[in-house]
């Protein structure tokens, strides 16, 4: 990449204020930055332009890794991260930087309009610079988005496995959503840990929220039940819906030695009976 001619650099620096005004006007007219506050956007544009002018004075941005441009890189990374978190979409983020092209072109045209060759050459270089910046911003934006999604997935995994204490020595785990290997692992670990922590003798796994049961899910359930038994506690599976029961029989699944109940209330009644407790009407 070639550097800008010093005349162009000077023109950009001297007309810095005008550039910012034109750019702001363009932004206001073209995009609906609903998620961004006007003042904040203005501040970011000013900062961007300041760093841009400083960068062009030093030379071509290259890969943005070195020298004068590294501050710009940090600024862009922070900006795209913040926007990704705020939910601004990628198009708007790209438009933020690309929209600088027009004001710059207008400026260069006014300054060097009568030297056609020089004008075109400089315009191309500036355009290339802006492309590099925009490319970097978008790639960071993408990474930030992915990080957000990954974090949400992990949170969902944690959220979807609450172990509740129903009574002294009785734990319940309402399972919601599809059971895959990863979730089973998390569920199993958190349930077993709770059993140790509370010294509970009976754990009820409620599968009313599990949409389908296939051989794999049944196998995961079996594993969990076996692990609970190895720890020295008992396990009851409740919330077996009629369709699920039919599926299990059709598939020929063998839930050997597992106590199953149709609903959580029955399971709790059984658990209470096993721990030697009884519930009666107060009168």
């Amino acid at each position: 990449m070639t550097n800008l001619n010093h005349r162009t650099v000077d023109a950009l620096r001297i007309n810095h204020g005008e550039l910012l005004r034109n750019w702001a006007a363009d932004m206001e007219a073209n995009t609906s930055q609903a998620a961004l506050k006007a003042g904040e956007l203005q501040q970011q544009m000013t900062e961007f332009l300041r760093l841009f002018v400083r960068g062009v004075e030093a030379g071509s941005p290259g890969s943005l890794a070195t020298g004068e441009w590294s501050e710009m890189r940090h600024f862009l990374e922070k900006l795209s991260y913040n926007w990704a978190v705020m939910g601004v979409d990628s198009q708007e983020t790209a438009a933020f930087i690309f929209s600088l092209k027009r004001p710059v072109m207008v400026l260069l045209q006014r300054e060097f309009g009568d030297e056609a060759l020089f004008f075109v050459e400089q315009l191309w270089v500036v355009s290339e610079f802006i492309d590099v910046l925009a490319m970097h911003t978008i790639s960071t934006f993408q990474k930030s988005r992915e990080a957000v999604i990954k974090r949400q997935q992990e949170e969902l995994l944690e959220l979807s496995t609450p172990v509740v204490k129903l009574w002294d020595g009785i734990l319940a785990l309402p399972m919601i959503g599809t059971l895959d290997s990863q979730r089973t692992q998390v569920v199993m670990e958190s349930l077993l840990q709770r059993i140790v922590d509370t010294g509970s003798q009976i754990a009820i796994i409620d599968i009313i929220g599990v949409p389908t049961v296939d051989t794999l899910v049944a196998q995961h359930l079996l594993k969990t039940v076996t692990a609970i038994r190895l720890m020295g506690a008992d396990c009851i599976i409740s919330g077996v819906r009629p369709q699920i029961a039919q599926t299990i029989v059709h598939l020929g699944l063998d839930l050997q030695g597992i106590v199953t109940k149709a609903n959580l209330a029955d399971a709790l009644a059984l658990a209470l009976a096993r721990t030697g407790l009884s519930v009666g009407r107060a009168s």
């Binding site: 199993m188 670990e189 076996t226 692990a227 720890m231 020295g232």
Partner: peptide, 11 residues
């Protein structure tokens, strides 16, 4: 007193 990790490993 089997630990959760041990139970999972055995399973």
């Amino acid at each position: 007193g089997m630990q959760p990790a041990v139970a999972i490993t055995l399973v």
